[in-house]
Write a protein that binds this DNA or RNA. Structure first.
Length: 449
DNA sequence: TCTGGGGTCCTAGGACCC
DNA sequence: TCTGGGGTCCTAGGACCC
């Protein structure tokens, strides 16, 4: 008897055409993206260890290969890695999202030109899935190499490419490509069942896309240690143990049965958030209200950029805890929300309810380390019913918003702000080591000498 | 002293309605 | 006075991703 798994595999490659049933998918992932961006404008740093910090200079979010080799941990707190960083004279940068955003756009444009406008799904700032429906199996690896070379020539950013019949297997391929850069030339294809088996047997279950910390612990406790072990578990088991339909999909994808398509146009956001850690913990309600007002106006900007309005305003604050444990986890989040009578994207109409909510959850005497605003119940502006009774001033409000957005875009991000955001900002984040925005600000442009 | 800032999807459970 | 079962909507929370 042939099991369903085997029969899927037998159908996988049609012998006459060499075209994989269901097509192939690639994931293109920039290598140490933020570090690569920083290095692009400081050629002195080529082959030197570099790290980039998160907002607030809190964690390490990107490491060059050299920094990895020295032993700097990903997502580790900066203050803990600092001795090592100083000892080895590693270059350190605060994150500069304006610069990374611009270079990201260039990489994505390159992919669209190479592979077709509609074949590219931008998955994150440094990753994209590419649909390769007609790619013959034997041409896949060569094509991956072509992508890699072209992107590097056109943008200066090096990428790794994984190719396989499903997104999850493509991610696994990419993981191996990055792991053995020397042999793989940053490209790996997993097309045949044999290739897939060998690859999955070599990957620990922890490193599979879709398996996070808590599932990893659970799986290892059950004796499921390799990706191959996981692939061979029954779907019913996955439904019970790994979050229902999500788990079942994961198993199918590992077997080569594609459950996730490439989506060229991402849906508009269902939720928009703006949140930050404070530069230092805060205990007075006034500072928290200032922060909330600032985040509300940031979120409102994002909302308008998407040409949408929101009906639900949620705010949250996170109390500071004293936890220096090795496996640090964030403490509880205290949140509350309110539903507005009508959706809006006008900043002051969102600030006001947001700030009022602070009273509901703030506890006097307690210190907080983080706060945020989330907007949901999002509707496109075009679908909002005109209301005869909406006063004229509302249109004025919209006009003002548009002006503010334009000014903020071309000048400094926060040059115009509402009075409620305050002016002292002792809660503002630290960002001491930011590089210039070489590609988007005239006054910070890279000079060729 | 010091541990990011976004997002998505799914499930469970309660309220409410007929 | 009795009170089933199904549907829908909402919220909270947990898991994941980069």
């Amino acid at each position: 008897m042939v099991s369903p798994v085997e029969s899927t595999h037998q159908k996988a490659v049609a012998a006459d055409t060499g075209i994989v049933h269901g097509g192939l998918k690639a994931i293109v992932d920039c290598n140490s993206f933020y570090c690569s961006c920083e290095r692009l404008f400081k050629p002195v740093l080529k082959n030197k260890p570099v790290v980039v910090l998160s907002n607030n200079d809190g964690c390490i979010v990107s490491r060059s290969d050299e920094a990895k080799q020295i032993g700097v941990q990903m997502a580790g707190p900066y203050f803990m890695a600092r001795p090592l960083i100083e000892k080895h004279d590693i270059a350190v940068f605060s994150s500069n999202y304006t610069l990374y955003g611009d270079l990201s756009w260039r990489v994505m444009e390159t992919l669209r030109q190479l592979c077709g406008e509609k074949k590219v799904e931008v998955y994150s700032v440094d990753e994209a899935f590419v649909d390769l429906p007609d790619m013959p199996a034997e041409a896949a690896a060569r094509y991956g190499l072509y992508i890699r070379k072209t992107v590097e020539q056109w943008t200066g950013i090096s990428v790794s490419v994984g190719i396989a019949p499903t997104k999850t297997l493509a991610k696994a391929a990419n993981y191996l490509a990055k792991k053995n850069k020397q042999q793989s030339w940053c490209v790996t294809a997993l097309i045949t069942p044999e290739e897939q088996q060998k690859a999955l047997q070599s990957i620990r279950v922890t490193n599979i896309w879709g398996v996070g910390r808590s599932y990893a612990d659970k799986l290892i406790n059950m004796g499921i240690t390799s990706a191959w072990d996981l692939r061979n578990m029954p779907e019913q088991w996955a439904i019970k143990q790994l979050g229902g339909v999500v788990g079942a999909r994961l198993i199918k994808e590992l077997r080569g049965e594609s459950c996730m398509d490439i989506r060229e146009q991402p849906d508009s956001k269902k939720m928009i958030a703006s949140t930050r850690m404070f530069g230092s913990p805060v205990n007075d309600i006034l500072s928290i209200k200032e922060a909330i007002a600032t985040y509300a106006s940031l979120a409102a900007q994002k909302l308008r950029r998407q040409r949408c309005s929101a009906r639900i305003v949620t705010i949250f604050i996170v109390p500071k805890e004293d936890n220096h444990a090795v496996d640090f986890r964030h403490g509880p989040v205290i949140s509350t929300s309110t539903t507005l009578p009508a959706a809006t994207s006008v900043t002051n109409e969102l600030i006001k309810p947001a700030v009022q909510l602070v009273e509901k959850i703030y506890e006097k005497g307690r210190f907080y380390k983080k706060a945020g605003v989330m907007l949901s119940g999002i509707e496109p502006d075009s679908s909002i019913q005109g209301n005869l009774f909406v006063p004229e001033s509302k249109n004025k409000g919209r006009f003002l918003m548009k002006m503010m957005d334009n000014i903020n875009f071309s000048m400094r991000n926060d040059i115009l702000k509402f009075a409620a955001s305050g002016t002292s900002r002792n809660w503002k984040m630290r960002q001491e080591k930011r590089s210039p925005r070489y590609t988007t600000r005239w006054e910070e442009m890279f000079e060729v000498k």
